[in-house]
C-alpha cells in the first residue's frame, strides 16, 4: 500500500515541478508582454500601413537599407509571417536574400518588440528567463540581441545575394 502511495506521489511530483514553472511564466511574463504588445499594436495601427509602404519602397534601392531597414520595418510592422510580403517591393533577383534577412530577424526582434512574433517568443525568453533568475536586468541583452540581429541580417542578405547570383549565372 505504501509503495503504491509512494509511486503516486512521485508521479504527481513529476507534474508539480511543471506547474510551478507554468505559474511563474504566466504571472511573470504574460502581463508585461500583453501590455507591450497592445501598446505597439496600437502604435502600428495609428501610423498605418500606407506610410510604412512609402518608406519600404525607398529602402529597397540601396543594398545596405534593403537588408537592414526594410526587413526590420517589415518584421516590426507586419509581424511574422506577413512580413515576407514586403518582398514584393524588392527586385526579383534580390527576393531570396530579402526573405533570408527578414526571417533571420523574427527572433532578434522579440527582445524589444515581442508583438512581432508572439508565437515564437521562447527562443529569446527561454534564455532570458535564466538571466532574470540570476537577478540581472534584461535590457542590455535585448538591445544587443537587436543590434547583432541587424548586423547578421545585413551579412546574410549580402551572402545569400551573392550565392543566388552565382547559381543563376551558372544555370
Amino acid at each position: 500500500m505504501e509503495a503504491i502511495a509512494a509511486v503516486a506521489n512521485g508521479f504527481m511530483d513529476l507534474f508539480r515541478a511543471g506547474s510551478e514553472t507554468f505559474v511563474a511564466w504566466v504571472t511573470g511574463i504574460i502581463p508585461l508582454v500583453v501590455i507591450m504588445m497592445t501598446a505597439v499594436n496600437s502604435l502600428i495601427k495609428l501610423i498605418g500601413e500606407d506610410r510604412v509602404n512609402n518608406v519600404a519602397e525607398f529602402a529597397t534601392k540601396y543594398t545596405i537599407t534593403r537588408y537592414t531597414i526594410l526587413p526590420v520595418l517589415a518584421v516590426i510592422f507586419l509581424c511574422n509571417p506577413m512580413c515576407y510580403t514586403f518582398g514584393r517591393f524588392v527586385e526579383e533577383k534580390h527576393k531570396p536574400a530579402f526573405y533570408d534577412a527578414a526571417v533571420s530577424f523574427v527572433h532578434p526582434v522579440t527582445g524589444l518588440f515581442p508583438h512581432a512574433n508572439g508565437g515564437e517568443l521562447f527562443v529569446y525568453m527561454g534564455i532570458a528567463a535564466g538571466i532574470t533568475q540570476l537577478g540581472l536586468s534584461l535590457g542590455d541583452l535585448a538591445v544587443r540581441y537587436f543590434i547583432v540581429g541587424v548586423i547578421v541580417i545585413l551579412i546574410r542578405g549580402i551572402v545569400t545575394d551573392r550565392i543566388f547570383a552565382h547559381m543563376s549565372s551558372k544555370k
Partner: peptide, 21 residues
Amino acid sequence: PVGMSLGEAEPETIELGVPAI
C-alpha cells in the same frame, strides 16, 4: 518557398532561392 511566394517571387526564383539560402 512559402515565405518567398508571400513576397511574390517567381517559381524559378524560388527553385534556386531555396538552395541559395
